[in-house]
Simulated assay, not measured.
Amino acid sequence: MSHHFLLIIHLLAATVWVGGHLYLSIGILPTVLRDRNASRLLRFEKSYEPIGMTALVLLVITGLWMTLQFGISWHQWLSFSSPVERITSAKILLLFLTVLLAVSAQTRVIPRLKQNPAKLPEMGLHIVAVTVIGIAMLVLGSFVRYGGI
C-alpha cells in the first residue's frame, strides 16, 4: 500500500482521536467536574468510544505499517538507534501508556462513576493524560517529515 495513502488514513484517525480527546478535555470535562455529575461524561464516552477506538486501531495499524516502510523492523523497535526509530520508540511507549490508562479507566474508574462522583477527579486525570499523550504523539509524528529527532 502506498505510504501516502497510509499517511492520510493515519492523519484522519489522529484527527478523530486527538480532536475527540481535546473536545472531551476542554468542552466537557470542566462542566462535569464543576457540576460533579458524570452523566454527560458517560454519554460522551458511550457515543465516542466506537469511533474513537476505531481511530486508535487505525493509528496503530498504519503507524506500524509506515514504520516498516521506513525500514525499521520490529527488532529495532525500542532501540532508539536512528532519528526516525527514536520517534517510533517514543510513540510505542506512549501507546503502551495510553493503553494502561484506558484499561485503568475502563476497569476501575468508569464503572464506579455513576455511584461515586468522588471518582470524577481521577477520571479527569485519565482524560487529560490521554489528551496530552495524544498531542505529544502528534507532535512527534510531525518530525518524521524532517528525518526524525
Score class of each variant (00 low, 15 high):
L113E: 03
F70W: 14
G52M: 10
S73E: 08
A136H: 02
R34G: 01
E85I: 10
S89H: 09
T67P: 13
L24P: 03
T54I: 00
S73Q: 11
N37Q: 12
W65F: 12
L68F: 12
G124P: 01
K91W: 06
R86C: 14
V99W: 12
I87D: 04
Q115Y: 02
L22S: 14
L29Q: 01
S47T: 15
R112Q: 13
H21M: 12
V130C: 13
I87Q: 00
T62A: 15
I110V: 14
F44V: 04
I135K: 03
K119F: 14
G141I: 08
V139N: 11
R34Q: 07
T62M: 11
K91F: 13
P50Q: 07
I92A: 09
S25M: 09
R36Q: 11
L64Y: 14
K91G: 04
I133Y: 13
W74E: 13
V128Q: 01
S73Y: 06
S81G: 15
F44T: 01
E49G: 10
K91R: 11
A90D: 05
E85Q: 13
A102V: 10
V57I: 15
S47M: 13
A129K: 08
L29N: 09
I133D: 13
I127G: 03
V103S: 10
R112T: 05
V132T: 13
Y48V: 07
L140T: 03
I133R: 08
P50L: 13
H21Q: 03
A118P: 06
R40W: 03
V99R: 07
V57Q: 03
V99K: 09
L140V: 01
G52R: 06
V84E: 12
R40H: 03
Y23C: 08
L56A: 15
T98P: 01
M123S: 02
